[in-house]
Measured scan of single mutants.
Amino acid sequence: PEEVRRLVEELYRKGVSPEQVKKILKKQGIDEREIEKVLRRIG
């Protein structure tokens, strides 16, 4: 979803590592598979 992409990109631009991005967003209840999809697209 758009909102997940925005959150991931925001953290990524701040220099947060992909592993940390995953941890942070998982705590917020976001599906890990969604996060990984976005990270793959960015990375």
Rank of each mutant, 00 (worst) to 15 (best):
P1K: 08
P1F: 14
E2M: 13
E2A: 11
E2H: 10
E2D: 13
E3Y: 11
V4D: 01
V4W: 13
V4Y: 05
R5F: 15
R5E: 14
R6Q: 08
L7R: 09
V8G: 01
V8N: 00
V8F: 03
V8Q: 00
V8A: 06
E9M: 15
E9F: 12
E9N: 06
E9K: 09
E9H: 11
E10W: 13
E10P: 01
E10R: 12
E10L: 14
Y12E: 03
Y12M: 11
R13Y: 14
R13E: 06
R13D: 05
R13P: 00
K14P: 02
K14Y: 08
K14R: 15
G15D: 03
S17G: 10
S17T: 10
S17A: 09
S17K: 09
S17M: 07
P18E: 11
E19N: 11
E19M: 12
E19T: 12
E19L: 12
E19H: 13
Q20P: 00
Q20N: 12
V21H: 00
V21I: 15
V21N: 00
K22Y: 15
K22L: 15
I24G: 01
I24Y: 08
I24E: 05
I24M: 12
I24S: 04
I24Q: 06
L25N: 00
L25P: 00
L25K: 00
K26E: 06
K26G: 10
K27C: 07
K27V: 09
Q28W: 12
Q28D: 05
G29I: 01
G29N: 05
G29T: 01
I30S: 01
I30L: 12
D31A: 07
R33Q: 12
E34Q: 07
E34L: 14
E34M: 11
E34C: 06
I35G: 00
E36V: 04
E36Q: 03
E36P: 00
K37G: 05
V38I: 12
V38T: 05
V38L: 12
R40E: 15
R40I: 12
R41M: 15
R41K: 13
I42C: 06
I42M: 12
I42F: 11
G43N: 10
G43Y: 12
G43C: 15
